[in-house]
Write a protein that binds this DNA or RNA. Structure first.
Lengths: 137, 137
DNA sequence: GCCAATTTGTGCGTATGTATT
DNA sequence: GAATACATACGCACAAATTGG
């Protein structure tokens, strides 16, 4: 994977694309560490900010999670809990605010479900570890 | 709203918090432009990168949308289309890849629904303009 | 059409702090 | 303590898009 500084596509997006391809192909497996910022800087001859932007892009997609002092790791697909809902239940989804992220203990790049029950209550669920299934009752 | 450089909370998060409060209170209404990067730099005495990080944070939350050459604007709440689903339908949600974003024409900070029908087909819907409702048929 | 001003986008460099190993 | 790795924050320059005169 090589960066072309003359391409129309910005360097950080090319870089992100390369790492994304490694993740999607399975060359970088879930739980595995991706190359560090310094690795990317040295191997591709870009500035650190460029490498950081590429990493931030993948984090916002939920593909990786970053831990200070350790590195960025391919997101481990959560074993999804199936939440059963009955007729009249309404589902929305959006990105959480930082407060909501803290409250639910979820990392960047993970949306939340807003589940509204027929009675009017509402609950928020992290969308990476829940799927909603419509059942009779 | 003032930035305290000695706070434990990084300047860019303080800045984002200030703007977020303006949006949530309605002082900055949907469709309205938020202060430009230069505005934030001058009024709060921070570096441009700090202002940009604050803005990027709000964009990732889906609160604003940015247009090059124009500025960042408070996201206009989409009139949500209600999609009716029957028993056996399964709903997941996640952030889209850039390719999926392009394909669906959606901005940053907007998750997508993955709707799996009982027959096995699957469709992707932008989560900011759709809500899923479980009905009989 | 043109030019200037404004605003965001990309990219580089540097420094320091914090967390982990 | 040392080495590694990410986080924050400043500076600078130029490119690209839009707007207004």
């Amino acid at each position: 994977m090589t960066i072309d500084p003359y391409s129309d596509i910005p360097a950080y997006k090319q870089l992100a694309g390369g790492v994304r391809a490694l993740i999607e192909s399975g060359d970088l497996a879930p739980g595995q560490r991706i190359p560090s910022e310094s690795d990317l800087v040295q191997r591709h001859g870009v500035a650190r900010e460029t490498a950081r932007r590429a990493i931030a892009l993948l984090r916002a997609e939920g593909l990786i999670q970053t831990i200070q002092g350790q590195g960025s790791f391919v997101t481990d697909p959560q074993e999804a809990v199936t939440v059963r809902c009955r007729k009249g239940t309404e589902i929305a989804a959006r990105m959480p605010s930082p407060d909501e992220r803290r409250a639910l203990g979820i990392p960047e790049g993970v949306p939340i479900f807003i589940v509204r029950y027929p009675e009017g209550q509402e609950s928020k669920l992290r969308a990476d570890s829940n799927v909603i299934l419509f059942t009779e009752e």
